[in-house]
Design a protein around this nucleic acid. Structure first.
Lengths: 207, 207
DNA sequence: AAGGAACCGTACCGTACGGTTCGGTAAATG
DNA sequence: CATTTACCGAACCGTACGGTACGGTTCCTT
């Protein structure tokens, strides 16, 4: 019995996890032209195994998305004593990590995939939203509330505050990348953007 | 000879324009499952005509995007005397129109289409970016510069200022809609969002 | 009225790909 | 050793769809 990792209701053997990683890398390369035969060839497994493990093509795509989502473990921001410096540093770190993820090849590929198959039928979009936009909100809100509790921030609706932070951090970056605009975003740029977004957010919501 | 409208290097007869409108409405319904046979049936034309007019499927999709883009004529903001009230009103109107377009079915469908076919091969993404994100920037920047010229705004880089406005207005709306999150956005919401984004922008960049 | 251009409707072709089946193999199980 | 399990590789099937061909119709021009 191999080491099994739970994913949703299922368990994944090591072999299956490896196949999903390979499928993900192939997805980044070829986008929505990902084919079952292609995955089987790249992963050196049979199509029969793919169908046995994941049901059908949609099941494989869902598994890829969920598998990637499961790998993104939230870095717990320790409930340190909240000073303005700590708040600012945490916000900057948050913005930096987030921008890095969003501008990465994997994020672009998965979001494209989910958008392509968006609709009432597929739940890929829902999965991506849950593990992206909403997961980030869930992680950021405690920080915002702590800041408010310490008298450093002022806002009525934490959801509104979070969405503003969202806009200030990502701006047009995600949509441009999704549409294929190949624009450079160096590590220095990301650092600068994270600082700027944090400053602007504090100017808007600072007490 | 029918009335011909220039689109790129080509001219479009009335019949072809009608077909493109029908194809666009069908695209909104079925998304990327748009098929040549389906367009021909809905438009009551032959596939042969579609291929004669648009070359191939990609040509049809490109024509749809360009045709819609050609319909969006920029509403010239008259160069009135720039007061803080006029600036604020113009920004609000800008944000309102923009948010309305982005949250509309047509915009969602076209952006999904372009994202699906994004890559070095297709220029759909480029077309959408040019007629969306960049066209808006081109229209907004004169207003921003006028505001700065009148001593109402303060910024070094107009591109940066515009991108911040972008983020404050759209926030997470576009990506959520693209991913299939069906969330209500009433006209009252749009009005409120436009006001809020404008206030925040003025707080950040007001002199 | 005659001729032709444009077009409709439909049948048809080729191919790509999702999904299935099957023979063969290696490792666990007893 | 015999059996089961899991898997690989490859051949195969069905279908959807992009693209083409062609006969028939409408309409415009001369």
């Amino acid at each position: 019995m191999s080491a099994a990792i739970k994913l949703g209701d299922e368990e994944l053997t090591q072999r299956q996890q490896d196949v999903l990683d390979i499928a993900l890398s192939l997805l980044v390369e070829v986008g929505d032209k990902l084919t079952m035969t292609g995955v089987a060839r790249r992963a050196r497994c049979s199509k029969e195994s793919l169908y046995k493990w994941f049901g059908d093509r949609d099941g494989l795509l869902t598994a890829i998305v969920q598998w990637q989502a499961a790998k993104v473990r939230p870095v717990p921001l320790g409930p340190q004593r909240m000073s303005i410096e700590a708040l600012q540093a945490n916000l900057e770190r948050f913005a930096y990590d987030w921008l890095k993820v969003i501008s990465g090849d994997i994020s672009v590929a998965l979001n494209r995939l989910a958008i392509t198959h968006a609709g009432p039928l597929s739940n890929l979009g829902h999965t991506v939203l849950t593990n992206g936009r909403f997961a980030v909100g869930k992680r950021l809100k405690p920080l915002l509330k702590a800041g408010r509790g310490a008298g450093l921030l002022r806002f009525d609706d934490e959801e509104e505050a979070f969405r503003t932070f969202f806009g200030l951090v990502l701006r047009d970056v995600q949509i441009r990348l999704l549409l294929g605009d190949e624009f450079e975003l160096s590590d220095q740029d990301v650092i600068r953007d994270a600082k700027r977004a944090t400053e602007q957010f504090l100017k808007l919501y600072g007490a």
